[in-house]
Design a protein around this nucleic acid. Structure first.
Lengths: 370, 370
DNA sequence: TTGTATGCGTTATCAC
DNA sequence: GTGATAACGCATACAA
């Protein structure tokens, strides 16, 4: 008979529930549910009353209950490589934004190139009953995705396909931006262009390199004038690439990098050696990470729009939910485009005759593309 | 009597549920629940059998059902300023990691300094019934948090307190790192040190500035030798600050910035003007964002550990859940510390006599602190 | 068109 | 210690 309440136990939420709303509006819970879910089968005057009650009571449906009964969690997964790589934050934000607009929550995880870590995150994804996951990792860690595939969870990947009927791959059109790059360099007068590649086990890097090879072939450059260095997409890899190209004879007058971090590494070596960029050597990156605007000089680079990527990924998921036939067009294209900043100029030999033109070009901080 | 199944309707999950496990193990669902939740009141041999069944069937409890009945969503909110600011990704990752270890999911949102956006995110947080939120935004947008406070949701903030009984503020010890900085500069021989502040409406910036003022006073510098410029924590703000200090007479030999982005802006101006850093002017940042290692030269800066911040935030939430008395020690301290890289050197006047020492110092890429 | 009743998968409250 | 059974808040099949 003690009045003692089990401390901190019955702290039931102060949230209004559907029954209260129903009473307040003088209708049944079912009707409230229908109104809240935008079903048109409710009489106008009733719907109005229900909305009023909802407003007045500040009712917000309990997502857990909703998920439980509908079998749909309204949670998505987003897997990225590493969160400290400046490429990804924008992607994450864009993806959260689209998802949010469609009333989805997103669980974000980064592999940090660590299998265990990825495995753990993926486990949490399936436990949370995600309705789909965007694998924005540019890597073929397909066996990591097995658990997802086994659960038949819709999957959107980049470049490399998961082996699942309910998956779809985003095809990045590397060729377009790289073509622009090479033509930009050719126009400036460059005839010896080095390429700093990423690790070739990864399909994405093979594609970037092949696009490069293809583009330089188009403008008639020989293999000896298009040396390739295999790096690892890190800053250090960039420094190594720079040192490599510096030793090449003849030395390339322009260096195209497979990502921005390597380009930044190249920039550093050049600065340290007193080699002026772009006067003595032009440098081009890839990705257009936020940072590229703040390097010294600002980096000319190929932009792969994170926003476009994120939107494409979400659209892909939608297609999968709609059950698009797997063999139709289950790939979505994502474009790329050159952003010209200040790390490219005519090669030294041609510089004087073009100096004026080049200087005027430098005025614009960001010449848009895409 | 048609066999036609409402297409795509009854796609009930293929997840094993607690009842199946119970049957498989020959016990009641309640027992399975107890085992799964680690209650010690279950007989050993039964527990063993249950675990076996769980393994064999690959059972994972449905979080939605769990949340529904327990009233605990196991979801946390994390609010940051802007995701493209390199300070935050690491913070986000660390926070997700701690949270994950404790079986919490986290919803991440960034304000982008946009009220509407923040408002929207916060609404989603309360709809999702988050059990707590970390407001890592360094800003006093307290009225934005009203909705959270009204719902009595535990809140952890930085520097500035939310007006809620269930909140707690992380006190960053700016003074420690800034003291180290000034002493480092003084040791190098600097007697004229400029400070590029962030916008002063924000308490965090006031604190940083005050810490600076305090530190320079300690080494006996006059106000005229410690000019202050009020910037805005952006790259552009940094360039403005640099231009300002360049015009000061006497010109400061060292510039301390309230954050790294401004320092990077300073670096840029100096490079453009042909003023060598650190030979002619030393530059120090604040935050130690990832990027600081890759600037030219690598930036000496004050590190505020994102990991420490994230852990502190989570600990704070735990304290709040435990119901620590609000007046006890409801503030948690976070340390800072100087990371010496290569953007600081003795001032030009003293340079020759110290050249050797300075060069040897340059060898280490990252001299740790904290 | 509206209301009633059932079930989603789990934990909590009882008896046993 | 263990097992029935009743919530949790909602959507929905079905009855009205």
């Amino acid at each position: 008979m003690s009045a003692k309440v089990p401390a901190g136990k019955k702290i039931r939420s102060n949230h209004v529930d559907i029954v209260q709303v129903a009473q307040h509006a003088g209708v049944s819970p079912a009707t409230v549910s229908r109104v809240a879910n935008g079903q048109s089968t409710v009489a106008k005057h009733l719907a109005k009353r229900v909305w009023k009650a909802i407003e007045e009571l500040g009712y917000t449906p309990n997502p857990q209950a909703r998920a439980l009964v509908s079998g749909r969690s309204r949670v998505l997964g987003l897997l990225v490589s590493e969160i400290t790589n400046p490429f990804f934050p924008e992607l994450m934000q864009s993806f959260e934004d689209v998802a949010g607009e469609h009333d989805f929550e997103v669980m974000i995880g980064s592999t940090n190139y660590n299998r265990e870590r990825a495995k753990l995150f993926i486990r949490r994804l399936v436990q949370r009953r995600v309705e789909g996951v965007a694998v924005m990792t540019f890597r073929a860690e397909s066996h990591l995705l097995d658990e997802l595939v086994a659960q038949d969870i819709p999957l959107v990947t980049i470049d490399v396909s998961a082996n699942s009927a309910r998956s779809l791959v985003l095809e990045v059109d590397y060729a377009y931006g790289i073509d622009q790059t090479i033509q930009h360099l050719a126009l400036l007068g460059h005839r010896r262009i080095g390429f700093a590649s990423g690790p070739l086990p990864h399909l994405t890097n093979v594609r970037r390199r092949d696009a490069f090879l293809n583009s330089v072939k188009k403008i008639g450059l020989s293999a000896q004038n298009t040396p390739i260095f295999i790096g690892d997409h890190t800053f250090e890899g960039g420094t190594l690439a720079a040192l490599h190209f510096l030793k090449c004879k003849p030395r390339p007058t322009a260096i195209v990098c497979s990502n921005d971090m390597m380009a930044i590494g190249v920039l550093r070596v050049m600065t340290e050696r007193g080699i002026r960029v772009p006067r003595e050597v032009s440098v081009v990156g890839f990705d257009d990470i936020h940072l590229a605007e703040f390097t010294n000089p600002p980096l000319t680079t190929v932009c792969m729009s994170r926003q476009e990527l994120a939107h494409a990924a979400f659209r892909g998921l939608e297609q999968l939910w709609a059950g698009s036939s797997p063999d139709s067009n289950n790939s979505i294209r994502v474009r790329t485009g050159l952003v010209i900043r200040q790390s490219t100029d005519p090669p030294l030999e041609l510089a004087d005759s073009l100096r004026t033109r080049s200087r005027s070009r430098k005025v614009k901080v960001r010449s848009a593309a895409i």
